[in-house]
Computed example of a mutant assay.
Amino acid sequence: MKTGPGAIYWHVANKSELLVAATDAVLADVLAADASGETPQDAIRTVALGVFDAIDAHPWIGAQLSRLASQSATLQIFERIGRQVQALGVPGAAQFDSASALLNYILGVGGQNAANARAQEPGTSRADVLGAESALWSRLDPDQYPFIRGIAGQLRDHDDRAQFLAGIDLILAGIAALR
């Protein structure tokens, strides 16, 4: 154990600072990625998927990023998204709402997927969880839940990343309507 200069306790004062530093380290590659040559939409998708994958690999990041918008990593994600929203030609008055909608979607869906994964017993497969949930949905009262029953099979077989990107694309389509 290192106890002299260079030991972690020389660099962070408490657990909160440690989590901020760890989050910054995990997201460093995502936030340093060069977006030149990409369309603004593709650059947003790249950042969004990078954050989604980081949260998937390190579920605690989702909760950490949602704590304070002033954290370094959250500000950097917001800045990257905001620059691309500007590049899309979104009017100034709609830029905050547009970038915020994207940020909140990215953090919300990433965090929810991580929370769902953490809520399962160790060793439980995603297929088992989705299969059980899909079966439950298909047994719901058809008069109260006709929509849910109709999509139960899609739940069982869906791809989280593809569904996440579909949401990003829906938001981007809405943003495009602002121009």
Rank of each mutant, 00 (worst) to 15 (best):
K2S: 10
K2G: 05
A7W: 04
I8E: 12
A13N: 10
A13W: 03
N14V: 13
S16Q: 13
S16W: 03
L18E: 09
L19S: 11
A21D: 05
A21T: 09
A22K: 05
A22I: 10
T23R: 02
A25E: 11
A25D: 10
V26L: 04
L27A: 05
A28Q: 10
D29N: 05
A32L: 07
S36E: 07
S36W: 04
S36G: 06
E38Q: 12
T39P: 08
T39V: 12
P40M: 09
I44R: 01
T46N: 08
A48T: 02
L49H: 02
L49D: 05
G50Y: 02
F52M: 06
F52D: 02
D53V: 01
A54V: 01
A57C: 03
I61D: 01
G62I: 00
G62Y: 00
A63F: 06
Q64D: 07
S66L: 07
R67M: 11
L68E: 05
L68M: 10
L68G: 08
A69K: 08
A69W: 04
S70N: 13
S70T: 15
Q71S: 10
Q71G: 11
T74M: 05
L75G: 14
L75C: 13
L75Y: 07
F78Y: 13
E79I: 12
E79W: 11
Q84P: 08
V85L: 09
Q86C: 09
L88N: 12
V90C: 13
V90H: 07
P91E: 15
P91G: 15
P91K: 14
P91M: 15
A93H: 14
A93V: 15
A93L: 15
A93M: 14
A94K: 15
Q95G: 10
Q95W: 14
D97V: 15
D97M: 14
S100R: 10
A101M: 08
A101W: 04
L102C: 10
N104Q: 11
N104E: 06
G108K: 02
V109W: 00
Q112P: 00
N116E: 03
A117C: 01
R118K: 11
A119Q: 03
E121L: 08
E121F: 02
E121V: 11
P122K: 05
S125E: 03
R126K: 04
L130K: 05
E133H: 08
E133R: 06
S134I: 07
L136F: 12
L136P: 01
W137E: 03
S138M: 04
S138D: 09
S138E: 10
D141R: 04
D141F: 01
P142M: 08
D143H: 07
P146D: 06
F147P: 06
I148M: 00
G150L: 10
I151M: 05
A152K: 01
A152Q: 03
L155N: 02
L155A: 03
L155F: 07
D157Y: 08
D160P: 05
A162Y: 09
Q163L: 12
Q163W: 13
F164Q: 02
L165G: 06
A166E: 14
I168D: 00
I168F: 03
L170R: 15
L170V: 11
L170T: 13
L172V: 12
A173M: 12
A173V: 14
G174H: 11
G174C: 14
I175E: 13
I175W: 08
A176P: 12
L178I: 14
R179A: 15
